[in-house]
Design a protein around this nucleic acid. Structure first.
Lengths: 209, 209
DNA sequence: GTCTATAAAAGGATAGAC
DNA sequence: GTCTATCCTTTTATAGAC
């Protein structure tokens, strides 16, 4: 059980090693200044050797991000598909600034035109969105959210706030992302409960008027 | 009045032209793939000529972003330093995807270590934050928000949601950023009013329990 | 101010040998 | 699998003419 079946054992281990080193280099220099050459050197490969495992810089970075998602998903989301689970993912990101930076910069790079990672990020967004919708529905089931809320909209706002807070946090590591997300979540929850009790349509109000 | 005083007239006009062309190229290729050579060519300058105006790629992009901020600030923020003004800025961004992409990618690139634009983005954030705090205070004055809210926290969340929604929007141009921001704002407002009326501390609640 | 020319360094990607 | 060698492109920066 120490090695997986024959021919793939080494390749798999090497791939994992590359992913980890790639993350290390990105964390130090940023996605923009991390070069295949440097990653290859640190793994003890030539640049062409690196290309054997990942056909391009984009493939490599996608793989790094995918590995992160799989790890986080297994560790936080799946055991607890609620807002609390979501918060644990964000809180954990605090320990891996390199990943956060890679995610923001690479997804921005991929957002324009026909970039090789464009589809990857679209699909990833769908996935995160669905997960978040589940969290909202769980909160509705528990009564924290009212029944009339638009779960897709809340999910979008939640993800947006989390992404934007990560951008802020990259510039200033002292900000408390979790506290801010909790405040936002509580606001949406309160609003949704009032909608249910008072008027399903009203979303704005000027009480002192 | 057609030209500013003598020696600077041409330099100023040329700089403005370069900024506009740089934006055009970034909009097409993304900040990552826009090259000084191509920008210079399209302006009708050599690369060395371009470098005469902006000493580096970073300086040039900072200048593009600064010009945008000045324009938007004059057009939307200053006439209306409220949440509505904030929304008009966001809504306007819908018309300049290149700028949005440049902002997200370049700020992410600059967020790591000692990047030449790091300080620029930190200062810019301070500025946007202060502007947003003013919007929150205006909403408190009008009674839309309760008096006990943490305006800095609301401002951070508002900016985060706006930034994150722009990331989403870059990947999927069909999402309605303004509607989502309004929902979030309404939630925070409602929460803040309840805090004032019921209990200044409570931010979460499970009413059906 | 603007050009041509040019340098040295670095990036990504690929062909083909072992 | 892994390497060497090579290609093409980008970047910054400089020297020196007009």
């Amino acid at each position: 059980m120490t090695s997986r079946r024959g021919p793939y054992a080494k390749g798999t281990a090497k791939r994992a090693e590359i992913l980890s080193v790639a993350l290390e280099v990105v964390a130090e220099k940023g996605c923009h200044n991390a070069s295949n050459r440097e990653i290859a050197e640190r793994v003890g490969l030539s640049q062409a050797g690196l290309m054997h495992y990942f056909g391009s810089r984009e493939e490599l970075y996608m793989a790094v991000l995918r590995a992160r998602d799989e790890r986080d998903s297994a560790a936080y989301w799946e055991p607890d598909p609620s807002f609390a689970g979501f918060l644990r993912v964000i809180e954990n990101n605090t320990r891996v600034p390199g990943l956060v930076q890679l995610y923001v910069e690479f997804s921005a790079e991929a957002s324009l035109g026909k970039h090789p990672a464009h589809e990857f990020f679209r699909e990833r967004y769908e996935w995160v969105h669905q997960r978040s919708v589940e969290s909202v529905r769980a909160a509705q089931a528990s009564g924290e959210f009212g029944p009339h809320i638009d779960a897709d909209l809340v999910a979008d706002v939640l993800i947006a706030a989390a992404d934007g807070l990560q951008q802020q946090w990259l510039l200033d590591r002292s900000i408390d992302m979790v506290a801010r997300l909790q405040a936002m979540w509580a606001g949406m929850a309160t609003l949704s409960r009032l909608d249910a009790e008072i008027d399903p349509v009203t979303a704005e109000a000027t009480p002192t008027e």
